[in-house]
Structure formats: structure tokens, C-alpha cells
Design a protein around this nucleic acid. Structure first.
Lengths: 231, 231
DNA sequence: ATTACTATCTCACGAGTAC
DNA sequence: TGTACTCGTGAGATAGTAA
């Protein structure tokens, strides 16, 4: 918990940038005000307060005023910096879904077994999925919303195709982990037959068998989002 | 220049810590208030404002409220973090003095040539100094103050000694660079004959000859302070 | 040209409280 | 339990201005 007032952070940072850590740096309140996008008066007050709180020292030589950051000021800055750093770093980079298994093999299974798809699964995911998708019903709004925002993240794109009679839409695959043990892929279909509250998973193996789970069981799915969302 | 209000930084950092970057995290305003050391009302207002500014999203499921940080919120946090990071990193870690040469060889030269000192100089600095100290008169207050605070930093300590008749005080040596070209050492004496506005330098060679400077010339001395001041 | 005072305004915060 | 309204207080910012 920093004792340094939040509104002084940028002022102190500016002084650091000017090299005021170990040397007295001449500075005017109006130039400082410009740097921190505040008025001259605000800059003056900041210096006054930083000084009385022991974060900086000041020296006047006639008209010139020079400022140096104290050890305490340095320490305080590091403290805030570390707080932000750790809060940014401890942030896990996956999207998690929780829900219950609703059906073993829906009609999705049929489509996903078509040659036009399986060829691409093999080359892009490295395997031909077990014939049957696992459908998971999301119960909480936050997971449904999370599913909606998933397509802002990079995915493995399996293109649609045509078999002469009709066309089949694209499939976006998000490598995922089920119950922190089974590798799978969460798939988003161009043409889905489910509402937003259901997600579909494919996997090399039969997830239900491997996990000994059945319809009604609760499961957790994690999708890694290493990179930043496209924007 | 962050658009994020400064008072929201710690709130947003707290949400990051709770893992709200990629997932909706359930949170109550009172627990959040405690975390940021503000009231429940303040926390509520922060969330409201962060939401309307587009830094977070919220979802209510009945009584439960979940929060997720948006890409914009993430970017803004990174921006502030980078600002602080660069201001801390660009900070040079030396103390600089500027002044004019005032005398070639003062009485300091006599003492510094005594065996009791030269033996230690040889072993601790690696050389026997040129017989003669360079005295530099500091004109600006900030340099005089900088000299005073110098002894908070680690130095090479040359112990005092006695020759039977009298004792000679310790000498603190701060490895330094003159005019960014000559290696030397700024020395602080236990018993000095100068006032605070004069610094003394010793060097392996004759600084004046090497730099072709003479009494009255302006010179710059840098003393590295890699480590943090003792405190 | 400076710095920093005074007055004024805005807004962040907490207390109380409705829902 | 929760959230978030209103209201009062005071801190932070600016304009004007003295020195």
C-alpha cells in the first residue's frame, strides 16, 4: 500500500525521467506542469508536497531551483511499480468454461466426420477427432459471454467446403484442456445448431470414456490465450 | 499520457490480481473496497466508472456480479506500467559534479603521499596515486549538497594510522571519471582542511597534464553509485 | 522571467440509506 | 447479504495575482 499519493506518481516519474534520482536537476514548475499535463500551480503544489513528505529534496540557487529524488522517494516508486508488475504478471492467460455434459453425440458428430473436415483436422490439429462431439451446457452468464468473445482470439481455422450438393461452413478450433487432464479442441461453427449456451469439443479420443464422465457431469474447459486479442 | 484516472489504477490492478483479465471473476464491492483500502461505495463507483470508460465489463447473474478486464483496460494498464518502467530505467546511476580547478597541489598532496596511505591505495585502488591532489571548487549549491550526501554511498575505505607522533584520519575513496575520460577517485577525508565546496581527486597519473587543463578550467566528475544508498 | 499564495470549482470519498 | 443512490466534506486543480 503506497503512501505516495496517486496523483504524485506521474510527477515523480517525470523527475526520474529527467535524471533527478542521484543528481539535483534544475526544473521550473511551469515546464514540469506541461510535462504532467497539469497547471504550473499544480506542479508547484506537487513539489511542495513531495518535499514535505520526504520524497524529494529541493535546493534554490537564487532564481534556479533544483530537485533530487530521495531514497524514500525511490523506494516508494519501486513499491508501486512492483505492485503493478505483479498484478499484471500473476494474471493467468486462459479462458475457463464450466458446465455440464448434455449429450454424447449430437448431429455435430456427423458433420465433423466428413472427409472435407477430417483431412484438415489431421493436418492442422495433428489428429482425426474421435467421431462424436462432446457438448457442454454452460449455466452461468459469464461463460456464455466468454464464449461470445472467444472469436476475438486467434484460432486454428478449418475451411468450409462443398460436396457438390451443399456447402459446409468453416470451423474455428481452439486447443483446450478438459478437466486439466485431456487435450481437446473447443470448436466454433459457422453454422451451428446450438444456442450460445452450448459449447462443442472434439478430441483425439473419447473424452467421456477417458474421464469416466457422463451426461450431467460437470466439467471444466480451459482455452489458452497466449497472445493478445486481435483488435 | 494515460486516460485512465489515477485513482482507478489500484482498483484495476486488484482486478488483474484476482485473475479478471480473461475470465469473469465474481466480486463484491465491499471486498474490493477492502482490498483497495477504500469504502464499499468508492469501490462501487470505481467499477461503475471503469465500466463506462470501457476498461472493464460486468455481468450480473441475479445477485452475483462478475467482472472482466477489457483489451482497452489491459492496454491502458500496460501503458502506465511502461511509463513507470521507463522512467525508472532511464535514470542514470551516477552523481555528477561540476566545478573549476583551484590548485595543483595543496597540502592534501603531502598527506596522501605518506606510506600509511599509499600502501592501502595500492592494494585497494590498485595504484599509488600521482603525488598531488586535484582540488575542484564547486560553484553550485546542488553539487555541494551532492558532496555532502555522498557518504551515504558505499566507498573504498582507507584506514587512518599513526606514525607515533600523531594520527592520520581515514580516507573514503569513490572511483570517479574526470571529463568522461580519466579514471580517478574522489576522496573524502576524515580531517579536511577545505570547506564543503571543494572536492579532492587522486589519480594514477597527473590529471592536469593528461587533460591539458589548468587552474581555472572547468571540469566534470562522475561518481558511479550502482547500488542503492545504505539506509 | 520565476514561485506560490488565495479563492473558487470540481470531484473523490464516505456516511447514511433505499432497494 | 448485496449494489448504488444522495448528500456533505474536503482534497486537488485552476485562475488570478503578489513577490
Amino acid at each position: 500500500m503506497p503512501e505516495l499519493k496517486l496523483q504524485h506518481i506521474l510527477t515523480l516519474a517525470e523527475l526520474f525521467s529527467k535524471g533527478a534520482r542521484y543528481n539535483f536537476i534544475p526544473i521550473t514548475t511551469s515546464s514540469l506542469g506541461k510535462s504532467i499535463h497539469k497547471s504550473q500551480q499544480a506542479a508547484s503544489k506537487h513539489l511542495l508536497e513531495l518535499e514535505s513528505d520526504g520524497y524529494i529534496e529541493r535546493i534554490r540557487s537564487g532564481t534556479r531551483v533544483s530537485v533530487r529524488i530521495t531514497t524514500k522517494g525511490h523506494a516508494e516508486m519501486i513499491k508501486i511499480f512492483s505492485t503493478l508488475k505483479s498484478s499484471l504478471e500473476t494474471s493467468p492467460s486462459y479462458v475457463e468454461f464450466r458446465g455440464v455434459i448434455v449429450s454424447g453425440m449430437g448431429e455435430g458428430a456427423y458433420y465433423m466426420s466428413m472427409k472435407g473436415y477430417t483431412k484438415q483436422f489431421k493436418s492442422k490439429l495433428g489428429y482425426v477427432p474421435f467421431p462424436g462431439t462432446l457438448n457442454v451446457k454452460l449455466k452461468d452468464k459469464e461463460f456464455i459471454e466468454a464464449k461470445r468473445s472467444l472469436d476475438a482470439y486467434p484460432a486454428v481455422l478449418v475451411h468450409g467446403f462443398s460436396d457438390g450438393k451443399r456447402t459446409y461452413g468453416w470451423v474455428k478450433c481452439y486447443p483446450a484442456r478438459v478437466n486439466n487432464s485431456i487435450d481437446a479442441a473447443l470448436i466454433l461453427l459457422e453454422r451451428t445448431h446450438h444456442d450460445d449456451s452450448v459449447i462443442e469439443l472434439i478430441s483425439k479420443d473419447n473424452i467421456k470414456k477417458l474421464t469416466k464422465l457422463s451426461t450431467g457431469s460437470q466439467i471444466t474447459i480451459r482455452v489458452n490465450v497466449k497472445s493478445k486479442p486481435a483488435q
